[in-house]
Amino acid sequence: MTDDDLDRRLRAADPLPDLPALRPDRLDQLLEDTVTSTAPQTHRRPRALLLAGAAAAVVAVGGGALWLTTGDGDPTVLTAQPVGGPAASCAAITPETLAGSDVAFAARVTGVEGGTVTLETTERFAGDVADTVEVVQGDAGDVVDGAPLELQPGTTYLLTADGGTIGSCSGSGADSPELRALFEAAFG
């Protein structure tokens, strides 16, 4: 059986060989809906997280530093530089803003000890990220947007760092369909 024969059989098995084209009025409506679409539902770190879990197992990022380590190599130190003033709030996170990040990855918290959170990288979207990531708790007073990201054991997060910094407005947060859609749109 030649490739052409095989492809012919495959094409015959197409479940949708004759989908009618979209009606012009429907296409116009679709365009209208698209350009008038509101900002994407941005990931807002849920306030409930601030109260959830044991306090000892909660670490705030934003005024802290991130180490990306391989376990025995010299860690790459990324310092935190909170953006904005005390009253600053985060702008809407978009694929465009995320796409500018140096590193983007998914990681699950495997341990919290002495203010250091250890995460296991589960997925890489951008940049060179080691299998293990350590996040050192910063000074909560340095967090400027009023909504510090908290890393809790067993939870998977989508994280970005830009210019050596996990900013508190970086778009990082717990893995959720909304945030993941933005990550995948940014790095897909």
Binding site: D14, P15, L16, L19, L22, L30, L31, D33, T34, V35, S37, P40, T94, P95, E96, A185
Partner: peptide, 28 residues
């Protein structure tokens, strides 16, 4: 894109995803 989606999911989901796809396209 419509044909791609309709081949792989039900019509309602295909329509929803088409709309979401165009929104991403608009933003990018």
């Amino acid at each position: 894109v419509r044909r791609y989606l309709h081949r792989r999911t039900d019509a309602a989901t295909a329509d929803d995803v088409l709309g979401e796809t165009l929104v991403v396209l608009w933003r990018r």
